[in-house]
Amino acid sequence: MSAILLDLSELEPPQPWERIVEQLPRLNQGDWLQVWHHREPRPLWALLNRLGLSYCCLEIARLSSAQQDHLPCPPPLAQYWILIWNPHDQPSSQTCQKLIEL
């Protein structure tokens, strides 16, 4: 089980979208995407829904102290922390839910 880390905080469209979509086929059992982004990529949500993937997008300024303690230090320009996972993959689902609920 592992996070695939993507720092997209300094990229301009469409590069963040392309990098995320490029990683989706690489989500193996127990893997999830952990993304740092400078904006909420709203157009991506429809694609993830069509693919049957789950996601959570949280504003870094609103993360709990417990969440912050479990994450690497966000890049300076990052404003959002995004998790993307396969809801049918129990290990990654459980891990992502725990991170979200901290």
Rank of each mutant, 00 (worst) to 15 (best):
S93W: 09
W36F: 15
C96P: 02
L47Y: 12
S65T: 08
C96K: 06
P75T: 01
W81A: 04
T95G: 01
P75K: 02
P75I: 07
L44F: 11
W85I: 03
H37D: 12
Q67N: 02
H88D: 13
R62K: 09
L5W: 15
P14A: 01
S92G: 05
H37V: 07
L33S: 07
W32C: 01
L8R: 08
S65V: 07
Q90N: 01
P14R: 03
S54Y: 07
N49P: 00
E18Q: 04
L33R: 11
W17A: 00
P43N: 15
L27Q: 08
P75W: 00
P91F: 08
A46D: 08
P87W: 15
N28E: 09
Q23V: 04
W81I: 10
Q67Y: 04
L47E: 10
P87L: 06
V35W: 11
Q67M: 04
P13A: 04
Q97N: 02
A3E: 12
A66P: 00
L58R: 15
L8H: 09
V35I: 13
S2E: 09
A61S: 13
L51F: 15
E59R: 10
D89Y: 14
E18Y: 06
L47M: 13
P76F: 09
C56E: 00
I4E: 05
W45D: 06
A3F: 14
L6T: 05
G52H: 13
P87T: 00
C57Q: 14
L58T: 14
P91S: 06
Y80V: 04
